[in-house]
């Protein structure tokens, strides 16, 4: 995973709440067996509409998605994170994220930032007024800044450290194998197993 320390880019205002993962990437696009190429499916239904914000030339190269509340609800598909990343997004800002989507994004290096709804709305207005407004996301200092604004955001120390180091969770857990071994020795015998097959 690429290290994430700071990112500077422009934003795109997605003025919709409850953007579920079926909107981010519809199920028909989930049949690929790779992690790449999902950008075609990103917001597929909405992108048919020329008025849709992602189709507007001034937002073409944006890397910071500023969305309404409850972003990423619904299906656990990590393809939603891949589609956003494959398209070029590095950061998503919203006042509320669904739990599974947020977990997936932070595992995969797509930084999801929670700001107050009033701050999100102010950002929408600023971006709409001047689409070229640079937005700086500083993970080390936990701030989002644009124009004269400098907004702090919360993220737990562990996740921040892991993203800044670009570390893979599995590698970290495998260092704890002794703990897993000793836990398994104490597991009760009545816990079910899938093998051998009983039917």
């Amino acid at each position: 995973m690429e290290k994430f320390i700071t990112h500077i880019g422009t934003g795109v205002p997605l003025r919709r709440s409850n953007v579920d993962t079926d909107q981010i990437i519809p199920a028909v696009y989930l049949k690929r067996v790779t992690r790449s190429g999902f950008e075609d499916g990103l917001f597929a239904a909405w992108r048919n509409d020329p008025e849709f914000v992602l189709n507007q030339p001034q937002f073409k190269s944006a890397t910071v998605l500023v969305a309404g509340a409850d972003f990423g609800t619904g299906s656990s598909r990590e393809h939603a994170v891949w589609a956003l990343q494959n398209y070029g997004f590095k950061v998503v800002i919203s006042s509320r994220f669904a739990d599974i989507f947020r977990g997936n994004s932070l595992k995969g290096g797509l930084l999801t930032i929670i700001l107050d709804q009033s701050d999100v709305e102010a950002m929408w207005e600023a971006i709409e007024a001047e689409p070229a407004t640079p937005i700086t996301v500083n993970l080390e200092e936990r701030t989002v800044s644009y124009g004269s604004k400098n907004l702090p955001f919360a993220i737990d120390d562990y996740t921040r450290w892991r993203l800044m180091e670009g570390l893979d969770d599995i590698g970290l857990t495998l260092k704890q194998t002794d703990f897993i071994d000793s836990f398994e020795k104490k597991r009760p015998a009545y816990k079910p197993a899938t093998l051998p097959i009983r039917s």
Binding site: S76, R77, E78, H79, V81, I100, G103, N104, K107, G108, D156, D169, I170, L172, T173, L174, Q176, T177, I180, E184
Partner: peptide, 21 residues
Amino acid sequence: AFGIGTSEVEHVLATQTLPLQ
């Protein structure tokens, strides 16, 4: 019982555990 993403699927396959808040 809860849903997980594909990175977590890989994590569980490899370690039978998950780091969770």
